[in-house]
Design a protein around this nucleic acid. Sequence first.
DNA 1: AATAAAAACCCCCTTTTGGGGGTAAGCTAG
DNA 2: CTAGCTTACCCCCAAAAGGGGGTTTTTATT
Lengths: 205, 205
Amino acid sequence: MKMINVAIVDDHKILTEGLQSLIQDSGIAQVVGVAHSATECRLSLGFWKPDILLLDVGLPDTSGLDFCKEIKEQFPKIKVLALTTHNEYAIVRQMLDNGASGYLIKNAMADEVLMGIEVVAAGGTFLCHEIDLLMKRPSEKNIWLSPRERELLRLISEGLTNTEIADQIFLSPETIRGYRKNLLLKLGAKNTAVLVKMAIEQKLI
Amino acid sequence: MKMINVAIVDDHKILTEGLQSLIQDSGIAQVVGVAHSATECRLSLGFWKPDILLLDVGLPDTSGLDFCKEIKEQFPKIKVLALTTHNEYAIVRQMLDNGASGYLIKNAMADEVLMGIEVVAAGGTFLCHEIDLLMKRPSEKNIWLSPRERELLRLISEGLTNTEIADQIFLSPETIRGYRKNLLLKLGAKNTAVLVKMAIEQKLI
DNA sequence: AATAAAAACCCCCTTTTGGGGGTAAGCTAG
DNA sequence: CTAGCTTACCCCCAAAAGGGGGTTTTTATT
């Protein structure tokens, strides 16, 4: 059986060290590279040629969300396995949407990490137990917005008025009004204040 | 020289264990009790009779801010030394306002913890290096609000309109308008959306 | 090919907010 | 004792948001 090549990107050095020995000792995979930032990773990814990239969402220089997308565009064959502290529905959904093949939270069991690596290397999708439950549970908190809606939500949170947003993204102010009303409806928010609060709390922006 | 009696309240068990050995080994102080929640602490504080209480702000059951106030009301002689991960101006100010005698961030050096204990036990006020810098640096980010202003900010973030707030706290809607305008001015926010975002980011609510 | 969802657009009208001006009592720390 | 801050109050008017009702086109997914 072929060894699975794994690379790790995470700024928490203690964690990466722990992960390295965990993977090396497993016998099923080997660590071919470690980076502590997106920039560092970009420089070496071509050389490492990993099968799987263990990626932290909370990177110091780039959003893990964007970085995942970037990797999947440049190296479609590399499978991304997210490894983070976030257990918010919106983060997981966006990560999977951006091409991630799996999602682990940092307090998951060690064997879940190895299982994730195996499943993802075999072409499957893996979610650790807690995230699996979160994604399956139909909850009013599990709100999913389209990219456009998220963009609007971001602009609203930055304090732009409907006309300002309209000018910026070249749409009619009436359209912006429509999106705004729909966002209030979807999130069940009474007004902009609550909308912004929910957006931040649920990490929708 | 009399031994300083220290009690610890923090839900992170690994940290409390480390702290215990640090303090016991120092020779200047001894740990008379450890609690992992505010409730647990309330039950035992009368027996422990500590000189100093090392208090985490991010407790699972109560806000450390409120708990500090509560302790200082019930046991004015106990000196509270805050120990947290938060390095936001508003949190530190509120903590000191609520009667804390010192403030340490969790990644401070071990000797700063001991120094803090000594200084506070001697009746002084102690801030660890990083927090000391933060508090001295005059910055547009170091915004300080009166309790009333914070209350209004909270109600605004919850989506209440001026009239609703007026009804709830028995003031004239015109007064609420005044506060609102002043909050926008103080925080330099363009509108309610930005106001709410800043309130959350700077932990003013 | 049909259905559904997202994206874009439009009008009417009311409520709420924001910008500009103020006033004044009460407390509090130099 | 007085300068400064907080708390509380008031007016006018313009801009923005919100509640209700719609339409059309494009883009996926079945």
